[in-house]
Structures are given as structure tokens and as C-alpha cells.
Computed example of a mutant assay.
Amino acid sequence: MADRRRINGPVGTTLPPVYDSPPPPRNSAEKPENAIRKIFLQTGVTPSASGSAYLELVNPNPTGPSNTSLKLSCTVHGPRALPRSAPFSPHIILTTHVKYAPFATKKRRGYLRDSSERDLGVHLETALRGAIIADRWPKSGVDIVVTIVEGDQDRNTAENRREDGWDTMNVLSGCITVASAAIADAGIDCVDTVAGGVAALVAKDATSPPSIVLDPAIVDYHKIYAACCIAYLPTRDEVTNIWFKGQLPGADIMLYNNMVERCLVACRNANHVVVTALKKTINPEEEVS
């Protein structure tokens, strides 16, 4: 006999109805080519940690054909003393851990870290190592844990199942930015706030020539030739990590330099969000422009 008191949900995914006026044309809702997507950043979201931050990339057109979103949570534990059995270290020991939530992507993730998550952790550690003043805490350690609540993948269009890993560039950029805000919230001395930025060489359709865009939503483009993610210290004008993926047409070095320059523009825009969020943390009642 069936249980009449329980209402079973649908087997597949469903979308809620939107009772609103028709959305504007796609081109009018897209972000400018020289701008990044809007970022929501807030610190102090985890009281039990020494420092924490939450980052979310706001989709410029949530009712459009694609619906991508990036949501990251970062916690910082430490600095704390290393065990007595650990060898003496004149500087702080930095440990980074990046993990997708099981429901973060279309393909369900396992509970153990795979190779892509370990690569993200290595790049994140390299990016943050150049910003932290490590000799302030000898024989100490700090753990930085980034949880990817939602990856930058499209969940609505079933026909677009691109699984070539281009979205990891945007994920790494967000991890660098949110970890920088969490480290500052923990009170760890740094030479500067580090920010991540992404630029990609894409083609909008099969007939259009390739062009460089900032902070690309991967599913919105027909083909991605190459992508570059950079961790940048704006005040010191230093790059702490660079990750390039893909192949440029004709191996043009000038095109590579242009991609790097556009990445730095994205980093400066993201750093402005980090500085604004930290100022708001210090003076919550003061309006920060």
C-alpha cells in the first residue's frame, strides 16, 4: 500500500516558473568586454574559524539560456604551533585544501580529492605564498580550506556538456580572491592583498574570429582556444602565480602578452572588491564607495 502522507518529488531536475516580464535581449544584459562579473564578497561568515570569507559570482543574465554561478567558502585555521615532533621551520607552514562539494557540478563529486582538486590546491598555495609574510611565525602552521559550493558550470542546458575543464580557471581565480579576504580577516600579515583574474581567447560562434574576453562564462562561447589565470599583487605590481592552458593560433607571443595584460585588468577589478569588503568589515556602519 502506498504511503499517502508523503509527496515524492520529481525524478529529474525542474525549473521554477518565473512570473516576470520577458527578459531583455541577451546582448543588452551581457557584461562589457573590459569588465568582470559582479562579485559578492563577505568576511566573517564562520565564527569558529580564525578567518573566513564567502564569494559568489553574480550571473549577469539569470533568465538567459545559460545559468552559471560560482559560490566559494573559505576558512582559515591558524596560525598555530606545530607539533613538538615537527622539525624547526623559520617560517610559517602553509597548507591549502580545495574541495568540490558533492553537488557542486553536474557530475557528482566523490568525497576524496581527485587530481583536479589537488592541482587547484597547489596553484592556490603558490599564489598565497608570495603574499604572506612567512617569517613572522616561525614553527607555526596555517590551514586554508576552500569549499566549492557551486562550480562555474551550466545546469540548465542539457545539450551543452563541455567537460574539458575550462571552468577550473574561473574556480581558481575565485579561490585566490576568497582566500585572500579570509587571510586578511584572520589577521595574518601580508605584503598585499592578492587577487585572481582570468582572460580567455574565445570565439562566440563558428564564423566569428577569436577575441580576448575577461572572466568568461565558458558555456556562452562556441570555442575556447586558450585561457590564462593570474594571481596578482596590485600595490606591489607582482605576479605570484600564472596558469596558462590551451594553444594560441600560430603561437603568437604578442597575443599571449595581451592575454596577460587583460588578466591583470581582471585582477585589479577583483582586488577592488576585496578591499571594499575588508573596509566594510572594519567599519560596518560606514558606507564604502
Rank of each mutant, 00 (worst) to 15 (best):
A266E: 06
S173A: 14
R37M: 04
I176G: 03
A49F: 04
E56W: 03
D215H: 11
G151K: 05
P23D: 01
L82W: 04
G174V: 03
Y19E: 13
W166D: 11
T46Q: 00
I92L: 05
Q247S: 15
C228W: 10
L214R: 11
N258A: 14
D192R: 06
K107F: 13
H123Y: 14
P284H: 04
R108K: 13
I92H: 01
A217H: 09
C190R: 09
L124A: 05
D220C: 05
A127K: 10
Q42H: 04
Y225H: 13
D152G: 02
L82V: 02
L264P: 00
D252R: 12
V194F: 07
P249Y: 14
K223F: 11
A101N: 06
A182G: 08
L255F: 08
T193C: 15
Y256E: 05
D119E: 14
K139W: 10
T168P: 01
T281G: 04
I148K: 03
A53K: 01
L82A: 05
I188N: 08
N241A: 15
P62G: 06
D114Y: 07
G9Q: 07
T43K: 05
R109E: 15
R26K: 09
H222S: 15
D3N: 14
V274Y: 06
C228V: 14
N170S: 09
P209G: 07
V122T: 14
A186I: 08
D3V: 13
D220G: 03
G246W: 01
V122F: 10
A251E: 15
V122C: 09
L172T: 07
E261R: 15
S21R: 14
V239K: 04
R155N: 03
G165M: 13
P249R: 12
E33K: 03
N59T: 01
N34H: 10
F88N: 08
I92V: 15
L124T: 02
L264S: 01
Y54K: 10
P216T: 02
H77E: 05
D143P: 01
R262P: 01
L120H: 04
P62F: 08
A200C: 15
N271D: 08
P10A: 10
T207R: 12
P79Q: 07
T46G: 00
F244E: 13
G250S: 08
R37Y: 03
F103W: 11
V145P: 02
C229L: 08
